[in-house]
Nucleic acid binder design. Sequence first.
DNA 1: ATTCTAATAT
DNA 2: AATATTAGAA
Length: 274
Amino acid sequence: MREEDSNWFARWEEELPSPKELTPLSQTLITPNLAIAFDIQNPNTPNPKISPLVHTLSSAEFDSNSAELGGMAGSSGVGDEPARTQKRPRLVWTPQLHKRFVDAVAQLGIKNAVPKTIMQLMSVDGLTRENVASHLQKYRLYLKRMQGFSNSGSVSGTGVDPATDHLFASSPVPAHFLHPGRGNSDHYMPFVPVAAVVGHAPQLQQQYRHFGSLPSVQFEVPFLPRQSQQPAQRMGTSVHSSSSHVLPSYVEELESATAANGRKVLTLFPNGDD
DNA sequence: ATTCTAATAT
DNA sequence: AATATTAGAA
């Protein structure tokens, strides 16, 4: 029903940095496996030498869930081009992405932490307001549930065990969230407490449980932080006019995969300071 | 008219 | 369980 989503990824290609602009950070660790894995879905990739990733998404391989009974076996043959009705793959909230989310919420303060604002602060391309809204809902749930115990923010010990709230527990919860107390209700934490890092090591395996089953190779394609994109729209509850509008720069990584169900999954995760 | 949020659906 | 979609409120 949403018409805006019809071409969200059609724009991916446009935003692609030219090959030389790519940060040599983790330049293409794409394994043949994955490349092939995706190519089979879309064999007619025109220009694989520049951005194999884009084709992963920008192409029309949305056979959707038509789920032909016993139909579609291998490659192509289905020259579909519905263009509309394209179903956006489920967003996977990786710990990195979630961290960005939490940071954004923290800086905005409870009052301003609404989906639209959060989304803007996060500044992750491809991320929609609804994505954030949905996540926010659950996050609030988590906070509420976690406030039951006045202690234990994120780490093992007393409180919530990561196994239960693996994702949410993977990121430290800003203190003022746990203490609905008043005083300075709004405003942000300058930095994420270093103490937060402690005790996370063992959990890492938990957090990445998804990837444990996936091919261990996650290719990384550096993307430009989306900066000069949105015309700084006017919103009622204007965010602080301070200098920093957006969280620290990052490199966006993205992956499209197929879950056990056969459902497509989109994973975009920022990588700023982790 | 837009966006939030709780409820509900997949 | 995790994320999406809807419905009604703000």
